[in-house]
Design a protein around this nucleic acid. Structure first.
Lengths: 165, 165
DNA sequence: TATTGTTATACTCTATAACTATA
DNA sequence: TATAGTTATAGAGTATAACAATA
């Protein structure tokens, strides 16, 4: 049996009933995933803004990747991020303009750039990481440690299932 | 104790080790959520493209909302979608150009548009819904029914936790 | 005065295609 | 020839600010 959905679209059609009927949407994994992601993104932005820092989740991921794989090329980074190499260019331009990372010429292959964090970039990343932990704590605040672990595991299964196309 | 991370960045620095060290990223809920969402989005697109249909998850959600709440205004819809009213305009333009929905003048309030699906839009939405179910089945293919239900519940908790700013 | 929808404008993210320099 | 990075370009999603019509 179905649970009772919007009993009626409300009475007097005055100003509308504030709560919309979302139909099947709340039963769809993709929809709920998108909504959660959107809220998490907003929380990330608010956390950083509140600390006077400016960074997107994507930029944070990029910085971690460069920090942990110093000297990697733009192609390798683009592949790891799942974006086109041309998409990466303006992103790196911006981070480089902020003095967070640099493009060095590779000594072994003149076509590639060896990416690395600047000293300032490494220092900033440490601060960013602290902010991310605060953010993570909040988005998981209604979950137990076990639930958070389970959620991460389930998300990985979803990703793996979606991939198989 | 920490689990063993990337034992080493590999030997001969020839072409790089194919697998990057992602550091703390795989332990971050926000990161895993974003990755899953990205894969799900790609699966959605592939499912529709494979059926010769063209629609984004956001457009699907919008159509369902209009279908279930015929006559709602653009402001109400924008609020439900969590976007600015100005953002909604070109989206509606596109769907209207595809003859999926129409903007009617509200008889009771000359400022608002009463949105509704066209007959063609209602018919298309039925087809889209079938495709979404196929898509949903695949992204949840590695999860049991219980796990899918649990995942949806956990995602809702994340969303609720993130919101409280 | 306040609200709704629109327009103008501006970013960011995304991609494809073509160019360059190197291999 | 093939690969890496860049540029030019275009489309979609997002926002803010200002405007016209209506309440």
């Amino acid at each position: 049996m179905d649970r009772p959905l919007a009993k009626s679209l409300a009475g007097t059609s005055t100003t509308s009933s504030k709560v919309l009927d979302r139909g099947i949407l709340p039963t769809l994994l993709g929809y709920m995933l998108r909504r959660a992601q959107s809220a998490v993104f907003a929380d990330f932005a608010a956390t950083f803004q509140g600390a006077g820092a400016s960074l997107t989740p994507g930029e944070f991921g990029l910085l971690v990747l460069v920090a942990r794989n110093t000297g990697l090329s733009q192609m390798a980074l683009a592949r790891a991020l799942g974006i086109d190499r041309s998409t990466l260019v303006p992103i790196l331009d911006r981070l480089q303009a902020r003095d967070l990372l640099v493009r060095r010429r590779s000594p072994t292959d003149g076509r590639t750039h060896a990416l690395e964090l600047t000293p300032a970039g490494a220092k900033e990343l440490a601060r960013f990481t602290t902010l991310v932990r605060v953010h993570e704590k909040r988005i998981a605040s209604r979950l137990s440690t076990a639930e958070t672990q389970m959620l991460i595991g389930l998300l990985e299964k979803v990703r793996a299932g979606a991939r198989s196309l």
